[in-house]
Structure formats: structure tokens, C-alpha cells
Amino acid sequence: MFLDEFHTLTGEQVRISAEQASRFAKRIAGDYNPIHNPDARRFCVPGDLLFALVLARFGLSQHMSFRFLNMVGEGTPLRFQEHEDGRIRICDEAGKSYLEVERSGETTRDEAVVEAFTRCYVAFSGKNFPHYLKPLMEEQGVMFNPRRPLVIYDSMGFSLERLDGLSPALELASSSLEVTGKRGDALLEFRITADGEPVGTGSKKLVVSGLCDYDPDAMDDIVAEFYRLKAAYENSA
């Protein structure tokens, strides 16, 4: 299974090392957010890796919503459980919840379908910055603190018309950024297609903290650093 190298399963406990998390972010998601670097002071496991592990364990349902409640640190022992209320939760040994999932409709556990959807969504999701967020911040005249950029995965959800033989593609349908003081809520809405035909829709919400006035030179430096990191990783792979 393609996720095996990105987590360690011991009994019912899942652990994700900083190296595993960082490798997933870069190799599968194309996400070079420094918060996923193993040596990051505020390191956290990518939300998209938790999303992928949920689908691998519980299958892909027609209608699913994910709420990211807390950031997962390196090596935190996690339990993936479906509760009596039908919700799936990822919690640690103390009961702290990191992700809550609701689902309905039909479910498929076809590994090829689940993996195809996972890879497709994660590749889309990994383009948060600079592809989607930079134009939104520029338009609103704001940006995150260049010294401490912080973009938090808040939630996402999708609805699919069908699951059979699904080989999907995702594309951005619309995007917006609502600014309130030093906080920005970014909404990315996407279309899901298969063989060119529409099969579903979805959306993703991000929270951008510590907003300040947009600085074109500072933003150019951040974007340049993103592509430098991308090139360095690809050349070392």
C-alpha cells in the first residue's frame, strides 16, 4: 500500500515521524510548507496525510467532511476509531481529538479507487501556496508574517455522484479570502471530474494567521524560497 512508508502501525496505534510526514508532504502533496520540515520549531504532520490514512482505513464515501481540530506533533500515538455516533475520530491516548470525520452515502474500499482519489485530492490540496493563496492575498492587500508564516488547515468536504471505477481529476472552481483583523479565512472550492465528466464538488477552508500589509518584495522572496526548496528536493530524490 502506498501509505505504508509514511506511518508506523503498532497494534492499534499509528505513529508518524517527522521524516515520514515531511516525505509525504513533499513527494505526494508537493507541499513545501516549512512547518512540515523535520527540524521546524512548530513542526506538524500534514493534514492531508491524516486525510489519506482515514480513507485507507475506512474507505471512500460519497459524502465526507473533515474538521481538523489540533495539530499533530512528531511521533504522537494516534488511534483511528469509528464511534457510536457514526463519526470517525483521530485521538491520542489522552483522548485529545485531532480530526473528526462525518460521512454518508455509499462507501467503496476498492484500493485502486481510494488511492486514485487520495492522490488526486492531495496533489490539488498541496498547491495551497503559492498557487492559490498568493493571488488571494495580493488581491486583498494582505499577507502572512514573512518571518512566521502560518497557514492552518481548518476543514474540507466533498460530495461524489458515484464511486464505481472512479479515476478523478480535481480543478479549482472558485476561491475567496475573508479578512477579519489579522486573520484570514480562505475558501477553495473545487470540481471533481472523471473522463471529463462532472462527478462531484468540494471545498477546503484554510486559516491564515498574523496578517500584515502585502509586501511584494517579501512575497517574491517567499515564493522564490518555495521553488528553491522544491528544486533542491527534486534534485536530491
Results as ranks from 00 to 15, higher is better:
M1T: 14
D4C: 09
H7R: 11
R15Q: 08
A18H: 04
R23W: 11
K26C: 11
N37L: 08
N37D: 13
P38C: 12
R41T: 15
R42S: 14
C44R: 04
C44D: 05
D48K: 08
L53Y: 06
A56P: 12
F58R: 02
F58E: 03
L60D: 03
Q62H: 06
M64Q: 09
M71K: 13
M71T: 14
M71L: 15
P77A: 13
L78S: 00
L78I: 06
L78H: 02
L78D: 00
R79W: 09
I88Q: 03
R89Q: 09
A94K: 15
G95H: 14
Y98V: 04
E106Q: 07
E106P: 01
E106G: 08
V113G: 02
V113P: 00
V114F: 01
V114G: 00
A116V: 09
F117D: 04
T118E: 01
R119M: 12
Y121K: 09
Y121L: 11
A123H: 04
S125L: 05
F129H: 07
F129V: 10
V142D: 03
F144A: 11
P146V: 14
R147W: 12
L150G: 13
I152T: 08
Y153W: 10
M156F: 07
E161F: 07
D164H: 08
L172T: 05
S176Q: 10
L177R: 00
E178P: 01
K182H: 11
R183I: 11
G184N: 03
L187W: 06
E189H: 11
E189N: 10
E189K: 12
R191P: 01
G202M: 02
G202K: 00
G202E: 01
K204H: 08
K205F: 08
K205A: 04
D213V: 14
A218W: 01
I222E: 12
I222R: 10
E225A: 11
Y227W: 09
L229E: 07
A237K: 15
